[in-house]
């Protein structure tokens, strides 16, 4: 396979040789192909995704690789353009949750006490909601838009980062090298910044890619329910819902391709996350 060879050639030199390496390479290959698709969508897509470009509801054929939808738009072009919204929403939402969850978890775990209990309680109560339900609730309150979807999804994943960071900080702060730093006079801020945070980074990266995989499904769910984009903007989740009424009549191509893309993208990030967590498994401390 060309893709496999290419991926191996590009990514192998930057990934250390260890178990989980192949998973990371496969995941990176998937994600970079889709990223490439999103960036060069205008060049790759054969038709304008919002314009009539073939007989409505025609099955996959050489002129329309994935067929056309009920309005005669090219499904293939919509799938390619649809990657843009997902990636944007999912990346920015995860970045926001990380930027909020990690520092709070670090401070909460490091100082402990009443503050820690209060924050943990709030986070745990958020964690108790199924992620999609909570995202829908927040999106419903804020109203449908890409920006609001980013807020909704980022709120949902803050507790994930918080719990991971707090747990790691709790174990790291009692390690001997932290004691040693304290003995040489380091203050709390310095200990957190130079001694605890650098030891968290690998875990944060793993959680980042795993939570992106999860966030993709949440995004698709929100989009399916119409909380992110409105017609005619292409987005996988949204296209799933517009194709759904036609499925019983046998027009399978309208939902199969966007649905498969959601799955593949989520799989890509999950592979990266799982692979990295193997790569950085305890005992392989570097």
């Amino acid at each position: 396979m060309i893709v496999k060879n290419l991926a191996t050639r590009i990514f192998k030199p930057i990934i250390p040789e260890a178990e989980g390496r192949n998973m990371v390479i496969a995941g990176l290959a998937i994600v970079s192909i889709i990223l490439f698709m999103a960036i060069f969508a205008d060049i790759i897509a054969p038709y304008n995704p919002t314009k009539f470009s073939g007989k409505p509801l025609s099955p996959p054929s050489p002129s329309n690789l994935m067929g056309t939808d009920n309005l005669g738009r090219d499904v293939f072009s919509r799938v390619i353009h649809g990657s843009r919204v997902v990636l944007m929403v999912v990346f920015s939402a995860s970045a926001v949750s990380m930027a909020i969850g990690v520092p709070i978890g670090l401070i909460s775990g490091y100082f402990g006490g009443k503050l820690d209990r209060a924050i943990s309680m709030i986070m745990d109560s958020m964690y108790a909601f199924p992620s999609l339900i909570l995202a829908i609730a927040i999106a419903a309150v804020l109203g449908p838009s890409v920006f609001n979807a980013v807020i909704a999804i980022s709120v949902v994943y803050v507790p994930t980062y918080f719990r991971m960071t707090r747990g790691q900080t709790l174990s790291l702060k009692s390690r001997l090298f932290v004691e040693a730093a304290r003995a040489s006079g380091a203050g709390n801020l310095r200990i957190m910044r130079k001694y605890i945070f650098p030891n968290l980074v690998t875990t944060v990266i793993v959680v980042f890619s795993l939570s992106i995989a999860d966030a993709i499904l949440t995004e698709a769910g929100l989009s399916f329910l119409g909380f992110i984009v409105s017609a005619p903007t292409p987005d996988w989740g949204f296209d799933l819902s517009s194709g759904r009424p036609y499925l019983p009549s046998g027009y399978w191509w309208m939902i199969t391709f966007p649905g498969a893309m959601v799955m593949i993208l989520a799989l890509g990030f999950a592979l990266i996350g799982e692979g990295l967590s193997e790569l950085y498994a305890p005992g392989r401390e570097r």
């Binding site: 390690r175 001997l176 003995a183």
Partner: peptide, 14 residues
């Protein structure tokens, strides 16, 4: 202070 365990007293990322 010099600690007992030289494997634990250094920050693995520094």
């Amino acid at each position: 202070i010099i600690f007992q365990d030289p494997y634990a007293s250094l920050n693995p990322r520094m």
